[in-house]
Design a protein around this nucleic acid. Structure first.
Lengths: 320, 320
DNA sequence: TTGTATGCGTTATCAT
DNA sequence: ATGATAACGCATACAA
């Protein structure tokens, strides 16, 4: 910058103004721009961040990128941030509590301008003073929680199964034992079943439990080749997919004998194909909202939580 | 830091040394550490980067996170970088040449300590002086290209199909028209077929071509319900998966009538399940090598390119 | 072994 | 409107 100033025969402050789009004299403008071009100058973001004690970096903390929901979310977040001239610094935790905490605290060293996280640590300490948005989990006051309408989605799943003729429903889930937004998928499901007076069953286990418990469950509810349930709502597409495979191996036909609805709307290769009939989360919009919230600096009116609408999509595991 | 120095009754330099693990007097060490603890001090990475003109940030440029290969790669890169106490700044290009260029140039503003990129821009200008590793494409001298053994993989695919009794093979591909490492999948396939004296056909189209050309192709090679080809090697798992669906819709059975082998080893939900029989890329190791190369600062002996071994995995679309 | 002082590239606050 | 200058937080060369 000093070189540019010398080359253009102006002062540092003038160069800074030109770089930042602050109006300067016509001739100065030209001279500075020429010098910048000639010297191939480009701003040093570290220096700028140091000076203004704020970078354009947004920290994103996710469990992994294996799960299509997470990778899709990361993809949308990255694009949305880029659209706003922000950079995404990504951290993956594999749900390790200590890592989640480490990465959140790292933001204090990095002068990040915001944090978007999806965590499970029950005692997570969130840095104060950094705009933070949490996905699918309430992290306490001042930190907005963004989620899809899990309750409505669970309810919708039950309705769709019933519309398709199911009369004996079950909800299957493997997930975090800690209270979080996704619990509402069950609540909505249960409510819809109860309202309709339809019998239902819930089989919920903690993350880490071997998948075989679901195989055992399904086998235990199979009598003379006929299943006790004709409609299954799985808390995630991944589980729905596994259940589908298991049922096939057991000789049951999907959707003829058993219908399955998942949750997420994960697309196999980013194209339109779903791996199961499912409740689709509006991932793109969730990302947009997260970025909006984390970048807005009006701390007076940040909402406590935001629930975005979901929709049902057919994906082969229900009757049309 | 100034506060810490005052609190501990020492000079700034001493605090700096403690923070950076440079030996200082026993009592000083204690006093500084206590002060750090008491004040909740943490280094300012921007300032450190400014001063040392080097951050711990590594820039990663990928097309997207939809494709399981990319998301898996990003996942592995992120973890590997974290293991080395580096942060990953992720940029997604959707193969947009201008974006690819923008993001590469941004590294000059960011003082990143390295770049790992997977790009297609044929005239890409790479910042000089920043250690750079390219995946699946040669970017010129001084920039190492990391790839799986595409030639060997193509060859292996042909061999496996032949071992499984295929006698009429075809290679299908949609990809960048620019020369890149993945072209060798075809070369290896062609060579293996030629060596075995087996007839084969190659159907290659450029990215962006509608998928329907493959449907047309398959239909054109179907006579009286019998296909001209009994073994297909697809350049990616994604394509293999699509082809599989198309064949099913055409009433052909996989693998009974036609066997398919893909390339990548994409796992559906991060678990072990493959969506097709495939040539598996060692993604984890590729990520490790990329990070190794980009962090090593021995510019004297950076290899021109590195090809990592692949293996065949059964995934349901070939006979056992 | 510890303290002091300087500069990294910016931006903002002054005078001019 | 422009120029000079200080300060952001840290690391290091050098002096003590």
């Amino acid at each position: 910058m000093k070189d540019v100033a010398r080359e253009a025969g102006v002062a540092l402050g003038t160069v800074s103004k030109v770089v930042n789009g602050i109006p300067v004299g016509k001739s100065y403008q030209r001279r500075v721009e020429d010098a910048i071009e000639k010297l191939g100058y480009h701003v040093n973001r570290q220096a700028r961040a140091l000076r203004s004690s704020k970078s354009n970096i947004v920290e994103v903390v996710l469990p992994d990128l294996y799960n299509p929901f997470f990778s899709r979310l990361a993809d949308c977040l990255c694009r949305e941030l880029a659209r706003r001239s922000r950079q995404m610094m990504l951290f993956l935790t594999k749900c390790n509590y200590a890592l989640e905490q480490d990465y959140l605290l790292m933001s204090e060293q990095q002068m990040v301008s915001g944090i978007i996280c999806l965590t499970y640590n029950p005692t997570l300490r969130v840095p104060r003073g950094i705009p933070t948005v949490s996905i699918d989990r309430n992290l306490g006051p001042g930190i907005t929680c963004v989620a899809s309408d899990n309750y409505g989605g669970g309810s919708l799943a039950a309705q769709k199964l019933m519309e398709n003729g199911c009369t004996r429903l079950a909800f299957l889930r493997t997930g975090s034992p800690l209270p979080n937004e996704t619990d509402k998928r069950r609540d909505g499901f249960v409510r819809a079943c109860a309202d309709a007076g339809i019998p239902f069953h819930c089989e919920c286990v903690n993350d880490g439990t071997p998948y075989s418990v679901f195989e055992d469950f399904l086998r235990a509810h199979l009598h003379d080749g006929r299943p006790d349930f004709d409609g299954l709502f799985c808390a995630t597409d991944q589980l729905a997919h596994q259940i589908h495979n298991t049922l096939s191996r057991m000789g049951l036909r999907v959707p003829e004998d058993v219908q399955i609805i998942g949750y997420d709307g994960a697309q196999l290769f980013g194209d339109q194909e779903l791996c199961c009939s499912t409740i689709v989360q509006p991932i793109e919009e969730m990302a947009r909202v997260c970025v909006d919230l984390v970048l807005q600096d009006a701390p007076d009116k940040i909402p406590y939580s935001i629930h975005l609408p979901v929709c049902y999509a057919w994906g082969g595991t229900t009757r049309r």
